[in-house]
Amino acid sequence: MAYAYLFKYIIIGDTGVGKSCLLLQFTDKRFQPVHDLTIGVEFGARMITIDGKQIKLQIWDTAGQESFRSITRSYYRGAAGALLVYDITRRDTFNHLTTWLEDARQHSNSNMVIMLIGNKSDLESRREVKKEEGEAFAREHGLIFMETSAKTASNVEEAFINTAKEIYEKIQEGVFDINNEANGIKIGPQHAATNSTLSGGQGGQQAGGGCC
């Protein structure tokens, strides 16, 4: 738990676009061709390093079906970053981006960094959405954009880390009020108590174990 900051992420997008697979690839570095259905919300966590600082990502992976939107909405609260995912082989998942974006903007902090992700880039032969279209959508709505493949791990790391970098920059710029946890950012125990708790922080890391 010896992190400088903790960022809360939320992964959103239509069902079956590969949200859980992206998370699994990011946290466990593996791919499961047939992933379980996500009902409600699932979680992942991983430590990354930006600018020499340990940052813990706490990731909320949500159910994609339309019916669950009202549940998902409550999970935006306190998210510093969102990964909005569509499937490049299914145009309808791209067409639904606008409603997802509306939802996200309406229920989250206005400073939340949104990364648009066109997933399944390994399935080039079945592509229905051009990369340029994704780029255009992102430009138009002020999002960062990337095409990824949870299967080959292409750009997965980058997608999560670039989002964190953007959030980190916003903190440096003073856009985020880091003392307000509603912004989805928590200051780590190590950072908060400056230099006195280095050993305490390390002890905490032991207890934290595993993924973080």
């Binding site: 069902t15 079956g16 047939v34 992933h35 379980d36 259905l37 079906q65 339309e66 309808d92």
Partner: peptide
């Protein structure tokens, strides 16, 4: 939406107890 739900059923059946390999 209803049509989509028919499509969705197809998608989800393969994600139902995948380890049992009998619904896929």
């Amino acid at each position: 939406d209803r049509e989509a739900s028919l499509e969705l059923i197809k998608l989800d059946i393969s994600r139902t107890f995948p380890s049992l390999c009998i619904f896929q």
